[in-house]
Design a binder for these strands. Sequence first.
RNA 1: GGUCCGGUAGUUCAAUGGUUAGAGCACCGGCCUGUCACGUCGGAAGUUGCGGGUUCGAGUCCCGUCCGGACCGCCA
Length: 448
Amino acid sequence: MHRVDPSLSRIPVPSEELAALPDGTAVELHGMVQRIRRLSWGAFVVLRRHDGLVQCVVPAEAAGDAMSRLREEQSVLFRGTLRKAGIKDVSIRLRTAELQVEGVEFLCTPDEPPSVDLTKKVLELNLDTSLDLRPVSLRHPVERARLRIADALCHGFRQYLRSAGFTEIHTPKICFAGAEGGANIFKVQYFDRQAFLAQSPQFYKQMAVAFFERVFETGPVFRAEPHQTSRHINEYTSLDLEMGFIGGFADIMATETALLASMMEHLRGACSYEIDLLGARLPAVPPSIPAVTLAEAHSIAGAASGRDYSAEPDLEPEEERLVCEHASREWESEFVFVTHFPTSKRPFYTMDDPDNPGTTLGFDLLFRGLEVTTGGQRIHEYGMQVEKLKSFGLDPADFDSYLMAHRAGLPPHGGLAIGLERLTARILDIENIRLATMFPRDAKRLTP
RNA sequence: GGUCCGGUAGUUCAAUGGUUAGAGCACCGGCCUGUCACGUCGGAAGUUGCGGGUUCGAGUCCCGUCCGGACCGCCA
C-alpha cells in the first residue's frame, strides 16, 4: 500500500493572478502551443492555458534544439520569468506580461499538424467542417469561448437557485414513459424491455417538489424529432426548475426574471475575457419582463407583417421575431413572455386557466426572436390530472407511478425549462445553436 | 417529411461550355524580422461528391444518386 502524494493536487494559476505577480517572478506554465512566430533570435509562442492565451518568448538558446522541435498543438512545460509587456492581440488574455522562457519540456508532440488553421483570429470554417473537426476546431480561442459562456450561464443558474432555496437533483434519463407524449421519443433496449430516453425531467421534478419544495436540474434531454433547423438539436441541455407553494403562474415568471438577471450578472463577472473576445452584447433584464397573451402576440405580429395569425394555435417563428422586435422597441425589453397557449398545444400536466377556458397557465419566454423557455403552472390535484389525461386520450393506468405523487398530495406548483444552447446562441448572436454545443446531435450527426 | 440552395486543394473561396482548374491561409524549404492576422521568395498539394447523358469539348448544361445547409411542420 502507498498513499497518494497530496502535493500533486496543484491548481493552475489563473491569468488574473499571473497579471498581479511582480516583474521577474519565476514561474512554470504548462499548456498547448496555439501559435508560433519564429524570428531570428527565437520565437514568440502563444500558449493555450486553461483560462486563456499567454505569450511566451522563447530565445533560440533557451533549450538546446527546442526551436527546431517546436510545433503547434504540442503540450509543453515552460520555465521562466514573467516580464512586463504590452500585447495588442485581444485574443491573448494576459496582455500586461509575457513569459521569458528559460527552459522547455516537451510533454507531447502531435503526429500531424492540425487539419485547420488554428492560428487565425477567426476560424472561418463551414458549419459542417467545424462540427466534423470538433476535437480540433474547439481548440480555437473563439470557438471554445462560446462553450465557456454556456458554462457560465449554467453556473449562474445553479448559483442563483441554490441561494433561493432550491435543491439540485439528478433524475434518470432512461425512462418507462415519456413526459411529452407523441412520437418524438427515442426508444432504447433496456435488458429485455423497451425503455425511452427522457424528453424532460418533468415527472421527477414534480414529484420532488413534495420532498424538497424547490428543485432544479441541469442535464440532457432527448427529442426524436426529425427537425432540420438552426435552432433544433436532438439532444440539448435543459436548465430545469420546479417550485412548490406558488400563488399562481406569475410566481414562476417572476422567479425566471430574477434568475435571468442573476445569470447575466454572473456571466458578466465570470467571462469578461470571453465576452470581449466574442463581442457579445449581454441583455439587460428589466425588473419586470413584459407579458402578452398568445392572442395579443398574434395581433402584434399581425400589425407588423400585415398577415392574420389569429387562427394559429401557436406562435410561428416569424411571429417570435416580430413580437421580440415590438417588445424591444416599445417596451425596452429583449425578453417577452407569451402566455395562454391553447390547452391542446400544451402538455397534459399543464393547468388550464379557470378564467379563460381552453387556454393554459403556461408561458414561453422569447428572447431576441427565439423561444428560450417554456414553463407554467402544473396540475396538482389528482382528480383534475386524471380527467385531463383522459381528455388527451391517455390511460391514467400508464402513468401510475407519476400519479402516485398526486394521490399522496402535492402543493400548488410550477416550473420551467430553459434551453441552454438557445440562450447561449442568442446572447452571442450565433446563427446556429450547434455552434453553442460541444458535440451536437441531430438527425444527421452522431459523431464526433 | 415538404420547399429552396449548395458540394472545386487540408481549409476558405475563384474559374462566359473552350489552353495544363487558380488564389488566400495552413503545410514544406530559403531569406528577413520584438512579433502580435508578422514580412518576403519558392515548393508541394485536385478522382471538381459519385454515376450516367448531351457536346468536337463539361467544374460549368441535363438526369439520377449521395452528402450538407436554410426555411417550414414540431419544439427548448
